[in-house]
Nucleic acid binder design. Structure first.
Lengths: 149, 149
DNA sequence: AGAATAAGGTCAACCTGGTTGTCTAGTAGG
DNA sequence: CCTACTAGACAACCAGGTTGACCTTATTCT
């Protein structure tokens, strides 16, 4: 019997691969999961590079690299912090928001296909079950989304 | 609402971190998930480095590195292939088998705690649901367990 | 049998996505 | 104002992979 974590990893891979494949057909930059998490985070709140690193669970230097890429590709831009002259807010451009919208639709599609394959109720149970487990382990303050492997 | 893959990744991390923590308390070498997968694979069948690479979904060179480590640490040893003078079988030592046993117990403990937290039936549904999805996506020939992130 | 091709294993160079460590400029609290 | 801290940039490094070349042994095809 496969250990549960193995199933989690394999399923994650399977969904991620499909996501990536379909994305590539559109011909967008080779965005990695971390980029997506940044978009989602930036949509929710204004944030600096340090904030992003914290959220991702990586060092600020690693976060800075990611932000640089996103900047070069036009998904985000930096604007001066109103009160702190050291800091810069990282904000989504229109391209960034469009990407996020597109990605969200794609995820919805993939989840819908999953629901079709294993049943909506089963999928719901998976979702709530995993969420409950995370709640149980981490309590309120969920940790970053650091690299998985 | 969190996308499902995010939940998968976070849960995988959470379980993996706990596994790693408890393992470290025992003071064993810093084995990574890939090493564990190798053990599991070697227990099931005799295999060469190339086979291992295939199973892991990495190049034979990457597999060779892993096997080298495991060899140095005494978890596996190489023995000549009976009919093919090029090839070597990689086999588990007693230390390797002991580790695997220990790890399996640890995983069981973690799953038991998970079951306690979210309910045995929920956990069962998660397990069968994910397995069914993988079956649906990949059919019979499951792919390797390549790095997840 | 002999030649061409494929496969196991090793070596070496390189790439990527992270790390630590150091520095400057700006902030905040006593 | 002085001290301690923080945002961000720069550089060196590391781990875990990759690609490519190679040698040796196997296999296949004529």
């Amino acid at each position: 019997m496969e250990p549960v974590p193995m199933l989690l990893a394999m399923t994650y891979r399977a969904m991620g691969d499909q996501f990536h494949d379909r994305l590539r057909q559109i011909g967008l930059e080779p965005l990695r999961p971390a980029h997506g998490y940044v978009f989602r985070f930036l949509k929710a709140k204004r944030a600096t590079t340090v904030d992003i690193g914290q959220h991702l669970g990586v060092t600020k230097q690693a976060a800075a690299k990611i932000v640089n890429e996103l900047d070069e590709w036009g998904y985000v831009l930096r604007e001066p912090h109103p009160t702190d002259k050291r800091a810069q807010y990282v904000t989504l451009t229109t391209k960034g928001r469009d990407y996020l919208k597109f990605a969200d639709n794609l995820w919805s599609d993939l989840e819908a296909e999953m629901a079709e394959a294993i049943g909506q109720d089963t999928l719901d149970t998976i979702r709530t079950g995993l969420a409950a487990y995370l709640q149980h382990v981490h309590g309120e303050d969920q940790p970053g989304l650091r690299p998985v492997w």
